[in-house]
Write a protein that binds this DNA or RNA. Structure first.
Length: 575
DNA sequence: GCCGTTTTCGGCCCGACTGTTTTCAGTCG
């Protein structure tokens, strides 16, 4: 997929144009184009061949031409020119909180600042405060910004921040006079990584609520304190913004602070066309508030149905809402099974009994116990004898009168040469075979892709686990050609996993949507090694929802009997 | 640079906050 590369060139072009002080709307056009292309579920190359680039929202004649240029030359002449005029290192300076393009430009032109180190130096020698438009305060703020930038680890996985946010909400509910309270921002949209925590509240006594917020043990530093807005930095190093609004503005504020920014812009543009104005306080016709108490009202005012937060990324949801074709998203309550857990047999910590008990408590119909295969020694991969021992143990457990059943599965390694880690006569005895790459991450795209292809071709394989191999903040995806993988999965009727472990989330939202559009079955697996993490299923559901999936797209919505039938159908060649 | 059953030119989302300023630019979300 060239999409990501093109999006990146447009994004950087936009940033460079910003520093140059170009027309802000031209800059926005590049930013929007970058976003549109990154979210595409088809190869931009295919669209280009079909001459359909200009059909994309925000892509006109000029940008279409520029996409073609990148596709044929690998780069963009405008971008190359800009790089000569504006040092790329300035893009890094934009990362400093409090520094925007205008200030960066002045710093570069007047003081030759082109790196963080240089910036720190000119602040400390007080050269900055003497610049026009700058002052002592600005100088101090920049130094503070540099410190923050050095400390911050960037965006954090949702799975690290969501539990923290939920804990804070529950504490505030107990200890302060809140009426309504909700997490907003990218956490509410269930983005895979988040930057801060946004909490929205209504209360008869806002000041009291804000005091309680500032007093939380989790708070390291109060950044700003007011009756409607308080910002704090938590001990974990993450910023939290808490806002209190009036009940009649609840819906408008929730929509506003949930974002995304791009989504909000589109909704407000629709409002403008209808002669309305939307802000965080409500929907206004002239001076008069006509909606805002509930989110539904805000959308209805501009002629839209309610759009679930997970879709609010300006990735076509506005158009779908306008044409009445929003998906009926899969819900956590639809999920009846977990497609991937590890037991004590390999590197998991739970016994089969413990897994069953936990699954029962979650109301699941089935759990596929997929331990590692023999080669993966570090993870306690099962020899063939151990594998069959486990098979018998599962059969014994399944004879018990429980509504929950275990499925005899295996996460079988796709070896470096593309062969599978058990011979076919063993594979065919395993109820659910999910194949995975755990070695040779550095191989070329051809090698990795052909390994996955040969796994998909094997008649005993049902699915591919964590199809791209990425681990958030730790490891990039291996060089698999996704288009080719998708085509093969579609052809053979095989499933792809949505790995729900919060550092994987693999497939991610965009890839999930691409797979869904090709009609590829998707299976959510927690890949858990610890029993409590069966609850991580909801992260997988979040990815599915962000990938526009409906109930029918997700194998986990089948009950035990139905899922078993699907497994058998795959073995029969999918007729 | 995009876009148009009101427009092919003249618009383009909105408000809060901060700091440097005598009325506003820059940054942020």
């Amino acid at each position: 997929m060239k999409n990501k590369e093109i999006a990146e060139i447009f994004q950087k072009t936009a940033a460079l144009l910003e520093i140059k002080g170009e027309n802000p709307y031209r800059i926005r056009a590049y930013q929007r184009a970058a976003q549109t292309i990154e979210a595409l579920t088809t190869d931009v190359e295919e669209l280009a061949k079909a001459g359909r680039l200009e059909k994309l929202p925000g892509i006109g004649k000029d940008l279409a031409q520029k996409i073609l240029e990148i596709l044929s030359t690998g780069t963009l002449s405008l971008y190359e020119e800009l790089k000569k005029e504006v040092p790329q290192s300035l893009l890094l300076l934009l990362e400093v909180p409090g520094l925007g393009p205008k200030k960066v430009k002045v710093l570069y032109e007047k003081l030759g600042v082109d790196s963080i180190e240089k910036l720190e130096e000119v602040c400390k020698t007080h050269k900055v405060s003497r610049l026009p438009g700058f002052g002592v305060k600005t100088e101090q703020n920049i130094l503070k910004g540099i410190k923050l930038l050095k400390e911050k680890r960037g965006r954090r996985p949702l799975g690290e921040v969501l539990p923290l946010a939920e804990e804070i909400v529950s504490i505030l509910k107990r200890r302060s006079p809140v009426e309504k309270i909700s997490i907003a921002g990218s956490i509410r949209r269930r983005k895979e990584t988040v930057k801060d925590i946004d909490v929205l509240i209504t209360s008869k006594n806002p000041l009291e609520v804000m005091k309680k917020v500032a007093e939380l043990e989790l708070v390291e530093e109060v950044i700003a304190f007011g009756e409607t807005k308080t910002s704090v930095r938590l001990r974990q190093g993450i910023q939290m913004d808490v806002r209190v609004v009036k009940p009649e503005s609840w819906g408008a504020a929730l929509a506003y602070f949930t974002g995304s920014k791009a989504h909000n812009i589109r909704v407000r543009e629709l409002a403008l066309e209808k002669g309305l104005k939307i802000n965080e306080y409500g929907v206004f016709k002239g001076e008069k508030r006509i909606a805002g108490r509930a989110e539904e009202e805000v959308y209805a005012a501009v002629g839209l149905p309610f759009i679930p937060p997970e879709l609010r990324e300006d990735r076509g949801e506005i158009e779908a809402a306008l044409s009445g074709s929003l998906p009926d998203l899969v819900d956590y309550s639809d999920i009846l099974g977990d497609g991937h857990v590890h037991s004590k047999y390999s590197d998991g910590t739970a016994s089969l009994e413990e897994i069953l008990k936990k699954a029962e408590s979650l109301g699941l119909s089935w759990v596929a116990v997929c331990d590692h295969s023999q080669s993966l020694k570090v993870a306690g991969g099962l020899s063939v004898e151990e594998l069959f021992e486990k098979k018998r143990a599962i059969e014994r457990i399944n004879k018990r009168a429980s509504k929950t059943k275990l499925i005899f599965g295996a996460e079988v390694d796709i070896l470096s040469d593309g062969s599978l880690d058990y011979p076919d006569e063993v594979l065919k005895e395993i109820e659910f075979v999910i194949a995975a790459i755990h070695t040779g991450f550095q191989q070329s795209e051809e090698q990795i892709t052909s390994r996955i292809l040969s796994a998909l071709r094997n008649p005993f394989v049902h699915a591919i686990a964590h199809p791209t191999g990425r681990v958030l903040g730790e490891r990039e995806a291996y060089a698999v050609n996704l288009s080719v993988m998708f085509e093969a999965a579609q052809k053979y009727g095989k499933a792809l996993e949505i790995n729900a472990y919060y550092k994987r989330l693999d497939l991610n939202d965009i890839h999930t949507r691409a797979a869904k559009e090709k009609g590829i079955p998707l299976i959510i697996g927690t890949d858990t090694h610890f029993i409590d993490q069966l609850e991580y299923l909801h992260y997988g559901v979040a990815v599915a929802r962000r990938g526009w999936c409906e109930k029918k797209d997700i194998l986990n919505t089948l009950n035990y009997e139905e899922f078993k039938k699907w497994l058998e159908r795959v073995r029969k060649g999918g007729e």
